[in-house]
Amino acid sequence: MSSLWVSFAGDSDRAVVRESARRFLDGWLTPGLVEETLTVIGELVTDVLRHAGSGELVLSRRDSTVLVEVLDRFSAGDGRPPVVPAHACGWGAHPAGAGQVVWVEMPLAEPGRQQGDGVGVGSGG
């Protein structure tokens, strides 16, 4: 399993988080799912910054999915991602110390498509 771990603490880190996540996701997810996953990551990071001021993003590639986890160390929110993407395999939250981890699991390919079936990064879809 391959993973990416990025800490963030303020609005200035949003671009770093997004670019790091894009580099991690490119080549594994179909281009549409990369964008959908980046949108989810952006919403989760914004939510954590609003409530706690800092957090951590963890992306983990599994056999057929990518797990997106955002750690909010200081607030126990409502346990629901601010956006649940259409292609999500699952989502949820669990306590983590004084805060929580909100997670969303995304497939590597859209239903009916396989990664690498002629849809490559930069191919235009």
Rank of each mutant, 00 (worst) to 15 (best):
G112F: 10
S60M: 13
V101S: 04
V83L: 13
R73A: 01
G118P: 00
S75Q: 14
A86W: 06
V58Q: 13
V66Q: 04
F74K: 14
P85A: 00
G116F: 00
S75I: 13
G118D: 00
V84I: 15
P107Y: 06
S75W: 15
H94I: 10
W91K: 07
V84M: 02
G77C: 05
V66Y: 10
V84T: 09
R80K: 15
G79D: 05
P81T: 02
V101K: 07
L59H: 08
L71Q: 08
L67C: 09
G118M: 03
G120L: 15
C89K: 06
V66D: 11
A76C: 13
A109R: 11
V104W: 02
L59V: 02
G99A: 05
V84G: 13
D117H: 07
D117Y: 01
V68E: 00
V58E: 14
R62M: 12
A88L: 04
L71I: 07
V68F: 03
G92T: 03
A93M: 10
E110H: 02
D117A: 00
E69G: 06
C89R: 09
V68N: 11
P81Y: 01
V58S: 12
A109K: 00
R73K: 15
E110M: 12
P82Y: 06
V83D: 05
A88P: 06
P82F: 06
R80F: 13
V83R: 01
R61E: 11
W103D: 09
L59F: 08
G92H: 03
M106E: 01
V102F: 02
P81I: 05
G97S: 02
V104R: 00
T65F: 07
C89N: 12
C89E: 11
R62E: 15
G112L: 04
P81A: 09
G90C: 08
T65M: 07
L59C: 00
S64A: 13
A76V: 15
S60T: 15
L108H: 05
Q115R: 10
R80Q: 14
E110G: 09
G97Y: 00
G99M: 11
H87L: 08
V104C: 08
P85V: 08
L108Q: 05
R62F: 07
V119T: 12
